[in-house]
Nucleic acid binder design. Structure first.
Length: 199
DNA sequence: GACGGGATTTGCT
DNA sequence: GCAAATCCCGTCC
């Protein structure tokens, strides 16, 4: 298990998106060590009408233009946070939206963060982290994490030979957008229990 | 299950 | 003023 170096992120968002599948996302805050396998992502770049970076730098999206390997967190629909991994080099607005993570550690706290009663455990688990807003809520990621570097020890991503490339990747149009729908830039691990409804 | 609508903040026109 | 990279809960099969 080793933390991904900056040069992993300094490639095209579409490449990084596919190679992020099967990697382990970690948020270590206070007493809870949250971790899980990334199972579903979407790529966004500057030539893409659906991307926040399409119209250039703004106060909201400036982190997308940082050097690859930063975390871009934005607030949407008046209620939810979504987290993205910034890719490419400084001055280029690209990022990968994390849509799904299969939890490994911190699950009890994730259930609490999401306000889910674990009474019906299978239903609770399958709704815990299957969407970008849910992932952020479960992993306690909010706007205060916006702009953090993934090379530090609060939030970071690891590779593990246990999960690397031992699955096949599916792709489709991205979810919840009205422009750029011709691009097949949503990628997911096929057959994963949490995303199987998209097979 | 499959739908449809409401919640509610932020940024850009 | 409105659209948005969403989610949840109610209703009706």
């Amino acid at each position: 298990m080793s933390k991904l170096p900056v040069n992993f992120y300094s490639r095209d968002a579409v490449d990084v998106a596919q190679t992020l599948l099967g990697k382990i996302f970690v948020h270590s805050s206070g007493k809870t060590f949250y971790s899980g396998i990334i199972t579903e992502v979407e790529a966004y770049n500057q030539e893409d009408e659906a991307s926040h970076s399409y119209k250039g730098v703004s106060e909201r999206n400036k982190v997308m233009f940082y050097e690859g390997g930063h975390l871009y967190v934005y607030f949407i629909y008046g209620a939810y946070n979504c987290m993205n991994v910034v890719t490419s080099t400084s001055g280029v607005g690209e990022a990968v939206l994390i849509r799904g993570i299969e939890p490994i550690t911190g699950i009890k706290q994730m259930l609490r963060n999401r306000g889910i009663n674990a009474g019906r455990i299978m239903s609770a688990l399958s709704n815990l982290t299957n969407g970008p807003g849910k992932v952020c809520e479960a992993f306690a990621i909010s706007k205060k994490h916006n702009g953090l570097s993934l090379t530090e020890d609060i939030v970071y991503i690891c590779s593990s030979s246990l999960f690397d490339r031992k699955f096949s990747i599916g792709s489709s149009a991205r979810i919840g957008i009205t422009k750029g729908t011709h691009l097949q830039w949503r990628f997911f691990i096929k057959g994963n229990s949490f995303v199987s409804k998209y097979k």
